[in-house]
Nucleic acid binder design. Structure first.
Length: 84
DNA sequence: CAGCTGACTGTAC
DNA sequence: TGTACAGCCAGCT
């Protein structure tokens, strides 16, 4: 039984380079439209380098990053994200 | 098993 | 335009 967490990890890992997704979008893609908070809580606990959690941003803010928000911004800019 | 926590989101002032 | 409040869900203790 894949938990919501596992699906979120898959969804985030499937985000193409240069593109970002909001917590709400990820939650929706994972099957839970209103579980944006749960997504954030999961990302926080997830230190797997295979998960580009820096591509997950908030709808009104950048959100956060377990390895340093500065690194997140840097990566997004390098990938071509103009939302910074 | 029940309660608390959190990288959210949308609405209201 | 910016800040504050309430509602929402799953994971973890």
């Amino acid at each position: 039984m894949r938990t919501f967490k596992d699906r979120v990890r898959e969804v985030v890992a499937a985000i193409p380079r240069g593109q970002v997704m909001t917590y709400g979008e990820v939650a929706r893609r994972a099957g839970h439209p209103n579980a944006a908070r749960a997504v954030g809580a999961i990302m926080k606990s997830n230190f797997d380098p295979a998960i580009p959690c820096h591509r997950v941003v908030g709808a009104t803010s950048l959100g956060g990053y377990n390895r340093g928000l500065d690194l997140k911004r840097k990566r997004l800019q390098e990938e071509g994200y103009a939302g910074v």
